[in-house]
Amino acid sequence: MRGYSGFGTAVLLAPAYSVLWGPRIGVPVMLLMELFVSMQLLPKAFGQADRRVMLPIGGAAVLFTPLGAFILLTADQDLLRRFIGGFVLVFGLLLSSGWRYHGSRPLPLNLAVGSVAGMLKGATGISGPPVILYLLAGPEEAKRHRANLILFFAVISVISVIPPALGGLVGWTVLAKVVLLLPVLLLCVPVGARLFHVIPDRWYRRLALAFLVTTGLITVLA
């Protein structure tokens, strides 16, 4: 999903891993994996992205990520897990409904979207939904949308791993899980990138949305 659409690592892995191991292990595992994936996809996407829009969004997200990380370190873990699941579920349903933001993209709004995304990233590992819903209604072609998302996730993934590390969440347990799971993710990202040029967007989108809604629902109920 990440290789195909430019997003999907966090919205699928954060709720699933939070159910398996709790947010304080699951979120750092996902953040480290996303960092490597972002660096894998960034070189090709950098030249295709709209940096005028994406760099302010990414910059604001970077500034607000530590505030979200404080929530991750202090919030009740069961409550946070259910919030992650509910957030993913609502996001999947919104995408399924076809709702998008159709207004302009002035700098203050870019900064506001980035700030919300950053706080969510620090607290839940998931920053994509507000940015995705904000961007996908634009007139750009699919290739530009994908590049914009890849650039955003690359910018925020670098800073997002620092607060959990400083807070003592990146221990041997987290690193062992990353070493085990990261090769699988890195092998599948190029497959998704190739499918982007083969599978019609409407077919893939239905499958991806089904995964999102199902993952969110399981996380809320588990």
Score class of each variant (00 low, 15 high):
98 G>I: 10
127 S>M: 08
106 P>H: 13
147 A>T: 04
103 G>C: 06
127 S>T: 01
135 L>D: 13
100 R>V: 07
160 S>F: 05
132 I>D: 02
102 H>D: 13
108 P>Q: 08
153 F>L: 12
97 S>Y: 00
80 L>I: 11
123 A>L: 09
103 G>R: 09
158 V>Q: 10
93 L>Q: 11
121 K>T: 13
104 S>K: 15
96 S>D: 08
106 P>S: 07
108 P>K: 05
88 V>T: 11
160 S>R: 01
79 L>R: 13
104 S>Q: 15
107 L>D: 10
141 E>N: 11
149 L>N: 03
110 N>R: 15
137 A>D: 15
117 A>Y: 08
135 L>A: 08
128 G>A: 14
122 G>M: 03
152 F>K: 02
109 L>Q: 01
104 S>R: 15
127 S>A: 15
153 F>T: 06
133 L>Q: 04
104 S>A: 15
140 E>N: 12
119 M>N: 04
129 P>G: 03
119 M>F: 15
121 K>L: 14
100 R>G: 07
112 A>P: 02
103 G>K: 09
151 L>V: 12
85 G>Y: 05
118 G>Q: 01
136 L>G: 04
128 G>V: 05
156 I>E: 05
126 I>F: 10
136 L>K: 01
114 G>I: 00
161 V>Q: 07
140 E>H: 12
93 L>C: 14
110 N>K: 11
86 G>S: 09
107 L>C: 08
112 A>W: 12
157 S>W: 06
149 L>A: 02
104 S>C: 08
96 S>L: 13
85 G>H: 09
103 G>M: 05
158 V>S: 11
160 S>G: 07
102 H>N: 13
100 R>A: 08
80 L>R: 12
133 L>S: 06
142 A>Y: 00
137 A>P: 15
137 A>V: 01
79 L>W: 14
96 S>R: 12
135 L>V: 11
158 V>K: 04
134 Y>V: 07
161 V>Y: 06
103 G>Y: 12
142 A>F: 00
142 A>P: 13
129 P>W: 00
146 R>N: 05
153 F>A: 03
156 I>F: 03
82 R>M: 00
82 R>D: 04
149 L>Q: 04
120 L>P: 03
106 P>W: 14
87 F>C: 08
132 I>M: 13
115 S>M: 03
107 L>P: 05
157 S>G: 06
141 E>I: 07
79 L>N: 04
99 W>M: 12
102 H>C: 04
133 L>I: 14
149 L>W: 00
143 K>N: 01
92 G>M: 09
144 R>E: 07
151 L>C: 06
124 T>D: 03
99 W>P: 14
117 A>D: 13
100 R>Q: 08
80 L>Y: 10
85 G>M: 09
149 L>Y: 02
123 A>D: 02
139 P>S: 13
102 H>R: 15
124 T>Q: 05
158 V>F: 15
86 G>I: 12
92 G>K: 07
161 V>W: 04
110 N>Y: 05
84 I>A: 01
97 S>M: 00
85 G>S: 07
116 V>I: 14
162 I>K: 02
